[in-house]
């Protein structure tokens, strides 16, 4: 082999790794990408987001501020909404969970690698020479994460209320498959939200002497326990929220029939 000069400049994708390093970024692109496409489509539909005869409401549309379903807080779609613009109640609320996930520390690491190839995988060559990371704008905006967290925590309580409502049917108390879908969804979303790195910091991580505040210590311990598998919670909750919308949508369209268990 011919002698080469050092340091070795590496091209995009160049590595001595022998494992399938490209698989994880590929799965992230497929998983996150398909979610973004589906969520955008579903959010713009503005229909089939609740099921008649039940209290099932799609998490993509909760809380419904203005809308046509019985779940709307302030009645029908607002009169000031431009007539030429298609209306969907999801437009008012989806910015919050979207912002929470886009600025999430776990997702940041995952999509910087998968979508920006920055780097494509550990010790694999990058396509660009320039780099500012999060040290300057525009990515400095990621520091806003904790504000999205505050809204996300509020949403957990609202979705928990929706899940409780899903036990109420036209003929009284009951449990359907949809009830279970909405309950599992809120548990997974709570596991993801309450394991957030920012929350872990705010409830106690910011203190050097946690032992002085037993309440903070307990919350920090709980957050840390969830935080250890934050990535897993992130993916499980992403797919569960998508599935919950698919379930409600297909039941609403009459393609699937909700099975009453009790």
């Amino acid at each position: 082999m011919a002698a080469v000069s050092l340091p070795l400049a590496r091209k995009f994708g160049e590595t001595a790794r022998r494992d399938r390093w490209w698989l994880t970024p590929l799965l992230v692109v497929a998983g996150f990408g398909s979610f973004i496409v589906y969520a955008t489509w579903a959010a713009l539909q503005g229909q089939h987001y609740w099921v008649n005869g039940t209290n099932y409401l799609s998490p993509f549309y909760s809380p419904e501020l203005w809308g046509n379903s019985p779940h709307a807080w302030f009645g029908k779609s607002p009169s000031w909404w431009p007539a030429w613009l298609p209306y969907s109640p999801a437009i008012f609320i989806l910015w919050a969970p979207a912002g929470f996930r886009m600025t999430c520390y776990y997702y940041r690491g995952a999509y910087y690698k998968a979508f920006w190839a920055d780097p494509p995988a550990c010790s694999v060559g990058e396509p660009r020479k320039g780099y500012i990371g999060e040290s300057n704008w525009p990515l400095r905006i990621q520091n806003i994460h904790r504000y999205f967290l505050y809204v996300a925590v509020l949403f957990i309580f609202l979705l928990a209320w929706d899940a409780l409502q899903a036990f109420r049917f036209a003929d009284g108390f009951g449990i359907g498959v949809g009830t279970l879908v909405l309950c599992v969804n809120v548990v997974l979303l709570a596991g993801y939200t309450f394991g957030c790195h920012s929350l872990r910091h705010l409830v106690g991580g910011r203190k050097d002497c946690l032992s002085e505040s037993p309440g903070c210590k307990a919350m920090h311990t709980g957050c840390s326990a969830l935080n250890r598998k934050h990535g897993l919670w992130a993916w499980m909750s992403l797919f569960s929220v998508m599935f919950a919308d698919v379930y409600v949508r297909l039941c609403s369209m009459g393609i699937w029939k909700d099975i009453r268990l009790i």
């Binding site: 690491g109 910087y112 690698k113």
Partner: peptide, 8 residues
């Protein structure tokens, strides 16, 4: 700020 949390 240069760290972009790749976890490598």
């Amino acid at each position: 700020g240069y760290c972009n949390i790749t976890k490598c």
